[in-house]
């Protein structure tokens, strides 16, 4: 396959050795692969820590040239209903692998987006088709995967990457792409990435499209243009009792960046601590955030819930 022009693909590790920062997980998994005996796997952890990459490597190592015929990747956040599980996945697992005895692999990315019904349907399939298929599920929050599925999987928890593997990656990339990246820029990229490798690479490619010399000020400039940071303004509007404007702006941000209510509430929590109000009030708002997040999970209308959070600032 030709190399991609998108760096996250071009520099995606192709062997277990190339994966950085997840040594313990790699050790266990590569021994499964060596014995050609893979249990169902559940990868949980934040974005950009290597979950999909490792799933892809497993398939390539197990099936070599025929990996694409024996590997199905679906992203549950695109098709999250029971229909997908019943039709697409079931059709796939019912037949035997091509050209090998090793069970084929279904990689279900962002499995925490699957509805409960879909997960229930999946659970039966995991038992029924063990002779023909193995499941690798990945998710951000393990708690959103129902217990019966968790109990059928070997669970691996991925942690955000630390600074060392990230700066190694940055150095490797700058060598390959002939970029100049100074120490301060590395610090900046690390800080913004929050341990997310995909983001590191995207920031680098973004910066490189502007200049071959990457400085910390370029990094901040690019990221402040890219990050939906207007949220702070929304909070300030609400605090200054301009509820209507705050509400309108919030809706606009959500729609423009395709953010869900939960995404927003996560960011509000972070932002609250930087507001110019007394600490006591900050704590009150945090408490309210928690309550609203709970109601969001229980309720039906995310935007309504967020409005009620904003109104509590008044």
């Amino acid at each position: 396959m030709a190399t991609s022009n998108i760096w996250t693909e071009r520099y995606r590790p192709k062997t277990f050795e190339e994966v950085v920062g997840q040594e313990k997980i790699i050790a266990r998994i590569s021994s499964f692969v060596k014995q050609k005996n893979l249990p169902h796997l559940l990868f949980s952890g934040p974005a950009g820590t290597g979950k999909s990459t490792i799933a892809l490597i497993i398939a390539k190592e197990l099936f070599k040239d025929s990996w694409q015929q024996n590997f199905l990747e679906t992203n549950a956040s695109e098709e999250r209903g029971i229909q997908t599980v019943r039709e697409k996945i079931k059709d796939y697992v019912r037949t035997k692998s091509m050209g090998t005895d090793i069970p084929k692999i279904i990689f279900l990315d962002e499995a925490d987006a699957l509805t409960r019904e879909a997960q229930q349907a999946l659970r039966r399939m995991m038992e029924q088709y063990t002779s023909t298929a193995r499941f690798i599920l990945s998710c951000n929050y393990g708690s959103k995967i129902i217990d019966p599925i968790q109990s059928r999987c070997a669970i691996f928890r991925f942690k955000p990457l630390e600074k060392e593997p990230i700066s190694n990656l940055i150095n490797k990339l700058s060598k390959e792409e002939k970029l100049k990246v100074d120490e301060k820029a590395i610090d900046a990229i690390y800080e913004i990435s929050e341990g997310d490798m995909r983001r590191v690479v995207n920031i680098m490619q973004s910066c490189a499209s502007v200049s071959k010399t990457i400085t910390d000020s370029l990094v901040y400039e690019i990221s402040s243009a890219a990050e939906p940071k207007e949220l702070k303004q929304v909070l300030e509007l609400a605090l200054s009792k301009n509820f209507l404007k705050a509400k309108d702006q919030l809706l606009e941000i959500m729609l423009k960046h395709g953010l869900s209510g939960l995404d927003i509430i996560k960011q509000i929590q972070k932002e609250v601590w930087n507001l110019k109000i007394e600490d006591e009030k900050k704590l009150k708002i945090i408490e309210k955030c928690g309550e609203i997040e709970f109601r969001m999970v229980e309720g039906s209308d995310e935007f309504l819930q967020l409005q009620s959070l904003l109104a509590s600032f008044l």
């Binding site: 991609s4 998108i6 996250t8 693909e9 995606r12 974005a47 999909s52 990459t53 892809l56 990747e73 992203n75 956040s77 695109e78 990315d109 962002e110 995909r198 983001r199 995207n202 920031i203 490619q205 973004s206 490189a208 499209s209 502007v210 690019i222 990221s223 243009a225 890219a226 990050e227 939906p228 960046h257 395709g258 953010l259 869900s260 995404d263």
Partner: peptide
């Protein structure tokens, strides 16, 4: 193309857009 979800790309669109 990049083994991720539409939602996640949308969220980081500001970075992608540049290149």
């Amino acid at each position: 193309k990049t083994h991720t979800s539409t939602k996640r790309v949308m969220q980081n669109f500001g970075y992608y857009k540049r290149f």
